[in-house]
Simulated assay, not measured.
Amino acid sequence: MPRLVLFNKPYGVLSQFTGAPAGSGVTLADYLPLPDVYPAGRLDKDSEGLLLLTDDGGLQHRISHPRHKEWKTYWAQVEGTPNETQLKQLRRGVTLKDGPTRPARVRSLAEPDLWPRDPPVRFRKSVPTAWIEIEIHEGRNRQVRRMTAAVGLPTLRLVRAAIGTWRLDTLAPGDYRVIEMNSTARGRREPTPEARERKTRPRQSRQRSRRP
């Protein structure tokens, strides 16, 4: 039976199991003792939050390919105070070096109740910060960071909270949940009534999360 793994990727962890250059940091192998599962999409080393993995090629393609338009929800802590003009620019789409982005869903966000980041975000005392929620259905490299920078709001911390209907919920950094998936008549994968939750302990200790 196909498996879907929901993993809360900590800051500094590479979204791969092998092939990391020496000294480049820890990988998924340090957190996920699961055979034959592979990431459905990626999350930058310096970003945190939900990463999906699966042992089913069809499900991996459906989740990660932009053609299937799985909306990805990000919480971005930005430098500065967003105004409505900047938020409208992000909603319409902005032009990056690799072309214009598709329209995004964007709103101001109260500071979410997250775990402390390790290492902490470096702030400038003279510059305020704020949180925004951005939903996109593209998969360009470092896209959210480049979008916010393009409208004058550099991203300081980025957490992916959801991919489609799958959400981070109460998963602590470094923890994961395994869901067994059923095949439907249309070839889609859906969770079985009984989802199995497992948790792993990485090499180093970490703090538990509060509910985001």
Rank of each mutant, 00 (worst) to 15 (best):
E138Y: 04
A172C: 13
R142W: 10
A172P: 01
G174T: 03
T129P: 11
S126T: 15
S126D: 15
V144P: 09
G174P: 09
A185H: 02
I132F: 03
R186L: 11
P173C: 06
G139C: 12
I136P: 00
T129H: 14
R186S: 15
P202V: 09
G187M: 10
A150S: 15
S126A: 14
R206K: 04
D169C: 04
A150P: 05
Y176G: 01
E194Q: 14
A172W: 13
S183A: 15
W166T: 11
R203Y: 05
I179Y: 00
L158D: 04
E138V: 03
N182L: 12
E180V: 14
E180I: 13
T155C: 15
V159H: 07
P128R: 09
T148N: 05
G164S: 05
R145T: 06
E197F: 05
S126I: 04
R157T: 13
R201D: 12
G164K: 06
M147I: 10
P191L: 09
A150Y: 01
E135R: 15
T200P: 04
D169V: 02
G164H: 07
R208W: 05
M147P: 04
S126P: 00
T148C: 15
R146I: 04
Q207R: 14
W131H: 02
L153N: 07
P191N: 06
N182V: 03
I179D: 12
Q143A: 02
I134N: 09
P191Y: 07
R206F: 11
P202Q: 10
E138K: 08
P191H: 11
E194F: 07
R189V: 00
N182R: 13
A161S: 13
Q143I: 14
G187R: 09
R142H: 15
P154C: 08
R160N: 08
A162E: 14
G174R: 02
L156W: 10
A172F: 03
S183Y: 00
